[in-house]
Structures are given as structure tokens and as C-alpha cells.
Design a protein around this nucleic acid. Structure first.
Length: 790
DNA sequence: GAGTTTGAAACT
DNA sequence: CAGTTTCAAACTC
């Protein structure tokens, strides 16, 4: 069913819906080209990985909830059961979206695609978008529009250009306090506006006043993915749970303006809305959207909270187990944490302000903090994932986000706190039969770096207890709690994009393993369980194909989805930046490398290598192609190239390879890679022409193939319809059989007469020629019946 | 496919 | 920081 009302749908931006555009973009030959304009451009490869809608499937198949239409007019209810609402509230004033200065257009689109999220019973997903203080000049677009008390934002996402997109709800939208528990979302205002803001997305973590991160172009893609996800969800057959279930999804996101100079000016934290869902069997389930108090933790009960933010690096997402968190916790983050209770598992995320990175960890009493998590200068998101052993792997794909999260959780109920407890959960019946628990033994920070490509990633449906939330194949970085804390603590803030901290093999709770995004593929499938019903992704798209890649060629499907070329490293063990896989923070997968250590089997070595690289260059894993200076629209190489002989017109040149011009920071000699360069223009022209030819050839081949296929599959003569048919339409099944009979007869005759093979072949070919002539002759006469007389 | 060229990464 | 070496990709034949 539709998650959102038609009104909402009409308001969503078209770009959100344009999933094909993403795919095509990814298909571009030049990976770099695909990188969206953003201050921190994604790594080039992405485009291709998979277009995976980032899906947040929070519900196990068995527990998946279905939203009844009665739950709310608004939007949330879906057949798949879980809905995802990104509703920063109070951030946007009644001003229309047009008032917001954004590169991304304010677009209306179908909301349903972005709204659906599968959420297990009693799990809360809170997404808050917080308006950050405007730049000192106060001109930042986002600041002007966003107000602490304005309209409520229902949906947040990134436009294709990376602009944050939000749905501005009318003020009439009920606040959480009123709607909460009742699940009365009926008040869905007909006027919902999509708002995009300029600036890097920032997630306020510790305090509302703190500036979080900067918005980026990622959001657009994320929103797309979200949409994609929602569409899949809707396809999923409803799975009902025996008991009433309430899902709360609150997503908080801070809006930040560029040049945010004064934290004090930061807009108040916008509270997210709590949505409660009830299964069809339990009418009580409904989706309620309400605002939460920014200064008050969403769940005082100690539920784990997950904040999902589409921020792009260097923002970090902090996932924190709240179980141990006390109301008095020093943690300042008041913004809406996202609580997702999945079955027995809860994932908690907190956002922390850049200025106080270390605070994210303070809230966790039991969790081990990663000191390195705190980022350095720039605002960052931190992801802390509580881990308990034996760990079950959960993949969480955040809708609209190009990041995927993986967490290890135990099925056991360590914590006692009610997950849905707190003000947001008003329905007592909602208590999940199984306590949702995540022990906050370990916290992990995850640098959230936008995956380059959004292609595929539909998690393979799994039956195991672990939850899998879709991920994108792209270089998404995950930090997962490991059973062992490694001897080395890498600077998490500098980890390669897509780095994942995963539990070390075979041991205790405290370890971390740095894993590239593809990590998921290396994890035995048995360890994963999709949260949604298996049928949810059955129809999927190419995304599914890449979901399960295994190490170094073990995969069966990577060939079709692999975003980047396989490396051929022979001496570096794929643990140096020579290796593209390693340099992009990915595991080698289906590569041709020799003695590869860039895999899960060599976690320690890999971690050391990463640390070594970071020691040499703290930004070694950051994309080299970034946005130019303020006012420069073009991307440019962060370091510049040093070409001497190639004239910067060959792929040896990193600038040229990235399809960008050399800049003043380049130290190249004889550079011809500048705007006015005739050589460059010629080269580009030739390249374009070649591309066109390739496309034409491809199209021709496709057409021919289609025709051949059609011919082969044709079973009935088309001539019956009259003249004007192509000759091949006469090659019906009967005609083909008759022809074969003729050829076989000719063969038998040749054998009977003991003809030499060469002669026999000639006779057969001659017979075949006669058959063809007859067919052509019949076609020319447009006869409907063309029995071939041999 | 082998060999060469190239420039980034790594090393001194 | 500069020079040299190593390395793997890009390129050529």
C-alpha cells in the first residue's frame, strides 16, 4: 500500500524518483565523472558498484509489520510494514521551499517511495534534522529557511546534487507528544514541501547548539535510494507478527550551512517525529508522528538508538547503545536518536557535534569508547555500535543514505530496558514479545563516507537471526564492533571511506576490524538475516546481484556488478596505496592480485597497513578529487598532478583520468589539460565520438539480438496478418522443422551413398541453400502457408 | 600477451 | 623536502 498520501507523493522531487538516472550515471565510463558535486567528492569508482537502494530494513521477515492504511493517512503504513519517516520538525518555517536557496531544486515527488521502512516491533527509528547556525554572514540558504519552530519536516534526503531534501509539513502536523502512542497520523497535512538546503549536512549530536556537519550532495542520492528502498518494501509481502508491535522511527538530521562559524547561532535542534506502527492483526498499530524534545533523550528507558544520517564525510554517524545511558548522562546529544528495535536487537545511534567528538562516547557507561572516534577539526558523525557476543551481523542500510551499516548484535537480551519505552512509546501493547537488546559493551565510530555508487545492494534474504539491512556495494565504510580490540587503533576519523570495523575472528568482544564496504560480502551468509521478508527483494533489480560478493573471485555475481577493475597487484600484497582496492578502502574482490592481504583473513595486517598509510598521509584515503575553492564549480584534484611526459592527456594523469582540468596546484610539465587546450578538445571530441560509436554499436547489437531472438522464438507465421512482413516472419517453427528434415534427409542420402565427408557437407549446404531460396520465394509471394516441399 | 611508459606511492 | 626506488596501471606493439 502507499506509505504516504498522494499529496505527499506529488511533492517529492522528481530526482528522487529517478533511479535510472543513477544507474546511468554509474554506468559512465569515467567513474570520476559520476561523482556528484560536493565538497568531498566521492571516490570515483562508485558509480558502478551497485545501484543499491539504500534500504533500511529493520524488520525481520518474521516480524515484519504491515502498516494498515488505517494507521495513518499520512504515509507511513505500508504492506511491508515498516515505514521510514525522516521528519525533522520545527526546522522549517512556513516559508515555502522556494525560499530556500539550494542548488538542488525543490521538488515534489511521490513520497511513498521514500517513506516505507521496515521496522521491527518496538524499534524506534528517529531521524532529526537540526538546523545549524547560519554562517556568520547569515546568508546561508539553509539558515534562512530553517527555523526551530517552523514547519515540520517529514522527509529528509539528499537531492541528486547532494542537497538535503526535506518535506516541510504544515504546522498543523501533530507533535509527537500529541500523536504519540495514539498512532494518529491522520493529520497529515496536505501541504508538504520538499526543501533542499545548501551546505554540508551536519548532524548535531551532543547538543542542539552544536554544529554538526555539512550537508552534501549525497542526500539526493540517498533520497533516491530511499525511494528505491521503499518501493521494494512495498513489494514485500506483508508479514505479520503474532503480537502487537510498535515501531518508532525517528530520524534526526541537522541542517548545516556552509561556513558555519558560530555554533551559538545554531538553530535549535529539531526534533524528529515518532512513528508507531501496528501490524494489521493489531489495529492498534499505527503510525504516529510527533516531535521529540531535543534536550531529552528519546528513550530514557535505555533503548538503543540509531541515528541515521545521510551525511557525507567527513561527517560521522554515531551509533550508541543507550541501554546504559542514564537520563543524566553527560551526553549532550539531544537530537533525535534513531531507535530501531528489531526483534531482539536494537541499534542505537547518537549524533555528536564536531566540536565535542569525544562526547559521543560519554553517554555509554558500559560501552567501550573509541577515543579515536572523535574527529578532528571537521564535524563528524560517529557511529557506535554496541556489540555483544556472539555477534550476529546486522546490516543496516539507511534509506536515502549511501552508507551502510553493519552491526554485530547478540540475539540474547542483555539489557532490560524496554526499547520502545519513553515518551515516544505510548502504546503498552506494543511491547515486543522479545526484548530488544543490544549490550553497549562496545561502541564504534564509523566515519560516514558517502559511497561512490549507489548501485545495487539488495541484501540477500537470509533466514538467520542476524539482520541484514541493505547496503550499497559502493565503497561504503562500516565500522563494526569486533570481538577484539586490535592492538592498533587507527585514527578512525581518517579511515578509508567505507571502512568497517568488524569483529575480529574468533574472539572476544572488544576487537575491531577495519573492513571495507564489501565486508558484508565476505561475511558468511549464514550470519546474515534479512529483516524483511525474502520476497521483499525478490523483484529486485540488479542491486541484488552484488549483494553477496565474496572474497577474491569467490563470488558468482560480482562480474556483473563490480564497480571497479580488479587489481593486479603482485608485490604490494594489496596493502599499499598502489592497490586501488586498498586505496579505496575496499577489500579485494575477484581481483587478480597475488598474495593478497586485503581481505578478512588478514585483518591485522590490513589494519597495520592502513595505519601506516595514515601515518604517512592522514588524508590518504580521502578522495583525491574534491571540489574546488569557494566559487569554483569544477572539481579538482586535491593535490594536483605531477605529470611530466603525458601532457596530462593520458590516463596516467589523475586529473585527466578524473575528467577534470588541471589546476594551479598541479605541478605538471607541458600540461595540455586545460580548458582552452586544442589538444584536449580534440581528444575529448574523439573520445566523445568513440563513445557515440560504441553506443551505436551496442544499440545495433541489441536490436539485432532482439530480432534474432524474436525470430527464434516465433512460433506462428506472421504472414497471416497480411503482406508487408519481413522474410524472417516466414521462418516459422514449421518451416524450420521442414528445413531440418530436408537437411537430415540429405545427410542420410549422403551416408547411404557413402559420400566422403566433404561431399556430404557440400550436399547438405546446397540443400540448405535451396531451402532458403524457397523460404525467400514464399516470403516474397506473401503466402500464408508455406509448406516446404523437399 | 609481452613489453614499455608513466606517475603516484613509498622509501631514503 | 628532494631525490630515488618501487609499484601497478596505462599504454604500445
Amino acid at each position: 500500500m502507499d506509505v504516504v498520501s498522494p499529496e505527499l507523493n506529488s511533492l517529492l522531487p522528481d530526482e528522487i524518483m529517478d533511479t535510472e538516472a543513477i544507474a546511468m550515471e554509474e554506468e559512465l565510463p569515467a567513474e570520476h565523472l559520476a561523482a556528484p558535486p560536493q565538497s568531498e567528492p566521492e571516490p570515483p569508482q562508485v558509480p558502478m558498484e551497485t545501484e543499491v537502494p539504500e534500504i533500511v530494513s529493520l524488520c525481520p521477515a518474521t516480524t515484519s509489520m504491515q502498516m494498515t492504511s488505517a494507521s495513518t493517512d499520512a504515509q507511513c503504513s505500508t504492506s511491508s510494514g515498516t515505514q521510514l519517516l525522516l521528519a525533522p520538525s520545527g526546522l522549517i518555517t512556513g516559508t515555502t521551499t522556494t525560499s530556500v536557496k539550494t542548488t538542488g531544486p525543490v521538488v515534489t515527488q511521490n513520497l511513498p517511495k521514500i517513506s516505507s521502512v521496515t521496522v521491527p516491533a518496538n524499534h524506534q527509528l528517529i531521524i532529526n534534522k537540526v538546523a545549524s547556525a547560519p554562517a556568520a554572514d547569515g546568508k546561508s540558504p539553509g539558515a534562512a529557511v530553517l527555523k526551530p519552530e517552523g514547519q515540520k519536516l517529514l522527509v529528509a534526503g539528499l537531492s541528486k546534487t547532494g542537497q538535503p531534501i526535506m518535506l516541510a509539513l504544515p504546522h498543523t502536523w501533530n507533535k509527537p507528544a500529541t500523536t504519540q502512542g495514539t498512532g494518529d497520523a491522520k493529520a497529515l497535512p496536505t501541504q508538504i514541501k520538499m526543501v533542499t538546503t545548501v551546505g554540508k549536512p551536519v548532524i548535531a549530536v551532543s547538543s542542539a547548539s552544536q554544529l554538526m556537519g555539512s550537508s552534501t550532495t549525497l542526500q539526493a542520492q540517498q533520497l533516491k535510494t530511499l525511494q528505491h528502498f521503499s518501493s521494494q518494501i512495498t513489494k514485500k509481502p506483508p508479514v505479520s507478527t503474532a503480537g502487537p508491535m510498535i515501531t518508532k522511527l525517528i530520524i534526526t538530521k541537522a541542517l548545516n550551512n556552509k561556513g558555519l562559524s558560530s555554533p551559538a547561532s545554531v538553530a535549535p535542534v529539531v526534533t524528529g517525529r515518532v512513528v508507531t506502527q501496528s501490524t494489521p492483526v493489531t489495529p492498534a498499530r499505527n503510525l504516529a508522528i510527533g516531535e521529540t524534545v531535543s534536550t531529552v533523550p528519546q528513550n530514557t528507558s535505555g533503548n538503543s538508538k540509531v541515528a541515521i544520517s545521510p551525511l557525507k564525510s567527513p561527517s560521522k554517524l554515531t551509533v550508541v547503545s543507550v541501554a546504559s545511558q542514564s537520563p543524566n548522562s553527560p551526553q549532550k546529544s539531544v537530537t533525535l536518536p534513531l531507535n530501531v528495535a528489531l526483534g531482539q536487537q536494537i541499534l542505537t545511534v547518537q549524533q555528536s557535534a564536531t566540536t565535542s567528538p569525544a562526547k559521543a562516547g560519554t553517554s555509554q557507561s558500559t560501552a567501550q569508547t573509541l577515543k579515536t572516534v572523535g574527529g578532528v577539526g571537521t564535524s563528524q558523525f560517529k557511529t557506535i555500535i554496541p556489540l555483544t557476543t556472539p555477534p550476529n551481523v546486522q546490516q543496516i542500510q539507511v534509506p536515502g543514505s549511501r552508507f551502510h551499516y553493519v552491526r554485530l548484535v547478540t540475539a540474547t537480551t542483555g539489557s532490560t530496558t524496554a526499547q520502545s519505552g519513553g515518551s515516544t512509546n505510548t502504546n503498552p501493547s506494543i511491547q515486543p514479545a522479545k526484548p530488544v537488546m543490544m549490550n553497549a559493551a562496545v561502541r564504534m565510530s564509523v566515519p560516514i563516507i558517502p559511497a561512490q555508487s549507489i548501485k545495487q545492494v539488495v541484501p540477500k534474504p537470509l533466514t538467520s537471526a542476524a539482520q541484514v539491512v541493505t547496503t550499497s556495494q559502493t565503497p561504503q565504510r562500516l565500522i563494526m564492533p569486533a570481538t577484539h580490540l586490535p592492538q592498533i587503533q587507527p585514527n578512525l576519523t581518517s579511515l578509508p571511506p567505507g571502512t568497517v570495523l568488524a569483529p575480529a575472528h574468533g574472539s572476544g568482544n572488544m576487537g575491531y576490524a577495519v573492513l571495507p564496504a564489501p565486508y558484508v560480502t565476505q561475511i558468511p551468509q549464514s550470519a546474515f538475516v534479512t529483516l524483511t521478508s525474502s520476497s521483499t527483494f525478490s523483484t529486485a533489480t540488479p542491486i541484488q546481484t552484488q549483494a553477496r560478493l565474496s572474497l577474491n573471485g569467490l563470488s558468482t555475481s560480482e562480474a556483473t556488478s563490480r564497480p571497479r577493475k580488479p587489481c593486479n597487484c603482485t608485490r604490494s600484497q594489496c596493502l599499499k596505496l598502489y592497490c586501488d582496492c586498498f586505496a579505496n578502502g575496499e577489500f579485494c574482490n575477484n581481483c587478480n592480485c597475488v598474495n593478497c592481504f586485503n581481505n578478512l583473513d588478514h585483518e591485522s595486517e590490513r589494519l597495520k597497513a592502513i595505519k601506516a598509510c595514515l601515518d604517512r598521509n592522514p588524508v590518504a584515503f580521502k578522495p583525491k578529487i574534491g571540489k574546488g575553492k569557494q566559487g569554483e564549480s569544477d572539481r579538482r584534484h586535491s593535490k594536483g598532478c605531477n605529470c611530466k611526459k603525458s601532457g596530462c592527456l593520458k590516463n596516467y594523469c589523475e586529473c585527466y583520468e578524473a575528467k577534470i582540468m588541471c589546476s594551479s596546484i598541479c605541478k605538471c610539465m607541458g600540461c595540455k589539460n586545460f580548458e582552452e587546450s586544442p589538444e584536449r578538445k580534440t581528444l575529448m571530441h574523439l573520445a566523445d565520438a568513440a563513445e557515440v560509436r560504441v553506443q551505436q554499436q551496442t544499440a545495433a547489437k541489441t536490436k539485432l539480438s532482439s530480432q534474432i531472438s524474436d525470430l527464434l522464438t516465433r512460433t506462428t507465421p506472421a504472414v497471416t496478418s497480411g503482406g508487408g512482413k519481413l522474410p524472417y516472419t516466414f521462418v516459422t517453427k514449421e518451416v524450420a522443422e521442414a528445413t531440418c528434415d530436408c537437411l537430415l534427409e540429405q545427410t542420410e542420402q549422403a551416408e547411404l551413398t557413402n559420400q566422403p565427408q566433404a561431399v556430404a557437407e557440400r550436399l547438405i549446404l546446397e540443400e540448405f541453400g535451396r531451402c532458403l531460396r524457397r523460404i525467400i520465394s514464399f516470403a516474397g509471394k506473401a503466402k500464408t502457408d508455406c509448406p516446404i516441399n523437399c
